[in-house]
Amino acid sequence: MYKVSRWSAVSTQTVLVGWAVIVIFPMIWMIYSSLKTDQELFFSPWAPPMELQWDNFARAWTKAHVGDYLLNTLIVVIPALLLTLIISAMAAYVLARFEFVGRRFLFYMFLSGMLFPVFLALVPLFSLVNQLKMLNTFHGLILVYIAYSLPFTIFFLTGFFKTLPTEIEESAIMDGANPYQVFFKVMLPMASPGLISMGIFNFLGMWNQYVLPLVLISDESKYMLSQGLAFMLFKQFYENDWSALFAALTIIMVPTLIVYITFQKQIQDGITTGALKG
């Protein structure tokens, strides 16, 4: 295009490399620190481990219950995610394809949910979930996760269904398919790119969710991963097992990293198209 001087090319690379190091290094430090002893952590923070302390991971997994927290999180996030997608897709399909009284009203009703910060609902939600006897239950948390994921997912998928051609749907009806068959056999498969985007977007949101479980789950044995980690950090002040906490962080971060690197294109697209549409 235009001439970039050698000096500015070098300085550009310096800035970019510098920021990459700042982003990556804390994580590399965390990974190798997770294999050190507590003494090594305290007296030589930068040094690599003398001997690999795999026991840190065993303690994090069992004694600090990271394994249990991981299981709890999966028990909540998997059904919540699948139900969010199916419930939103059904609603979005109807909103995008049918004319009926109150359609616009319903669409804007769902849309308005994106305006409100969750903190405003926190106290009434806590009291409601208590009245429903669902505090400290996985199904309570699942229902709340679904409800708070609906506005954006329905908004996004309604837009997506509107872009799909109607011909295939119509020919399926000509062939005698009932509306349910049309939706599940024809429309859902066609909508899969949109469903994947929303799947990634909601998965990350639910996996990393912190405020909702903090308020709705107080029973330690039912903690979500984010809560469990924070709880471990607070406990360190009197238990002093720092190396296990580094190991716990690594257990949580490395899978995220692997999933991210594998699907980075879809994840970035999912999050940014999600964000830009909203």
Binding site: V94, F116, P124, L125, L143, I146, Y148
Partner: peptide, 26 residues
């Protein structure tokens, strides 16, 4: 309406109960 109502119902019920109701109560 044989498809509209059942397809919208789960979303409307969950959303009204856990989102609209707490916000309006707030």
């Amino acid at each position: 309406y044989g498809i509209i109502l059942p397809f919208l119902a789960p979303a409307i019920i969950l959303y009204s109960l856990f989102v609209i109701y707490p916000y309006s109560q707030a």
